[in-house]
């Protein structure tokens, strides 16, 4: 059964990646093009010879982009299926659809949104090649920290639920997550490497489209995975349940 969940997760991830790819083509690629134009213009002004193209631009923005987002979608779908399998039946009595949507919401927040707000996506020509090692470590480090905080918040929420009720326990968990994240934001180093003359509009639109691509991917994953798996999941009907439904 886990194998079937995993395969479905990866297939739904691929479908979600296709939708994200459409967003990337329409909103993301024009900004990548502007950024590369800026980079070439700066290089020409500095009198540097143009860099040789290892992979052509037309290849990068078609097959390359599709491969990158497709692989990412499949991998994310697999991890999502596992997170779902752990969460199902453990975060309350939510069915498959609600569990899937909640896991996707938590996943998007912890894996994408929280790291993005500290270390947002950058178009080509923003970011110095000398600091790539440090920036990569900080970005992946913050994803890990944010996921651990989210897990801690869920565990705290589950613990408080019997005493505070589900709603207040969930609110407390969200509060704990935000507080922990705030501490991480304040203690981790800031990265500011936007070139002085880089067009603000291109940067803004690029970052917005990056967030839009990720939001599309996670939303599609969260909404499609539940209905496609709910019939395969173990459940019992209340009629045959150990504790009969009491009527008063």
């Amino acid at each position: 059964m886990i194998r079937s969940l995993l395969v479905r997760g990866m297939l739904v991830g691929l479908a979600a990646a296709l939708l994200a790819l459409v967003v990337a083509w329409i909103f993301g690629e024009p900004q990548v093009g502007h950024a590369i134009g800026f980079e070439e213009h700066q290089a020409a002004l500095a009198g540097e010879p143009p860099e040789p193209e290892l992979v052509s631009r037309s290849m990068q923005k078609t097959l390359g982009l599709a491969t990158g987002i497709g692989l990412y979608g499949v991998a994310l779908g697999g991890l999502f299926a596992l997170a779902f399998a752990f969460a199902y039946g453990r975060i309350g009595s939510f069915g498959a659809r609600a569990t899937s949507a909640l896991v996707a919401l938590a996943g998007f927040t912890a894996v994408e949104l929280a790291p993005f707000m500290k270390y947002p996506a950058n178009p080509p020509s923003v970011g110095s090649p000398d600091t790539i090692g440090k920036r990569t470590a900080l970005y992946f480090g913050l994803i890990l920290i944010s996921v651990l905080f989210a897990i801690a918040a869920v565990l705290i929420g589950r613990r408080l639920a019997p005493r505070l009720g589900n709603w207040n326990a969930a609110l407390t968990a969200v509060g704990v997550f935000i507080a922990l994240l705030g501490v991480a934001y304040l203690t981790m180093p800031t990265v500011q490497e936007v070139p002085k003359d880089f067009p603000a509009v291109v940067l803004w639109r690029f970052r917005l489209s990056s967030l839009g691509i990720q939001a599309t991917l996670w939303t599609a994953l969260g909404l499609l995975f539940g209905p496609l798996t709910e019939r395969r999941l173990p459940h019992r009907s209340p009629a045959t349940a150990a504790t009969p439904i009491t009527t008063a």
């Binding site: 990337a24 993301g28 690629e29 990548v32 290892l54 992979v55 290849m59 990068q60 923005k61 097959l63 390359g64 982009l65 491969t67 990158g68 987002i69 692989l71 990412y72 994408e112 790291p115 993005f116 270390y119 947002p120 996506a121 950058n122 178009p123 080509p124 020509s125 923003v126 970011g127 110095s128 090649p129 790539i132 090692g133 920036r135 990569t136 470590a137 900080l138 970005y139 992946f140 690029f206 489209s209 990056s210 967030l211 691509i213 990720q214």
Partner: peptide
């Protein structure tokens, strides 16, 4: 991350091929 900060395969082909996806998905690059 391959061929950005770290590299398992020589050259820069993997990096250049998935370059647009890497930037647009929000990974650090350059």
């Amino acid at each position: 991350a391959e061929q950005g900060a770290t590299s398992l395969i020589g050259g820069h082909y993997v990096h250049e091929f998935v370059h647009d996806g890497r930037h647009l998905l929000g990974f650090p690059c350059h």
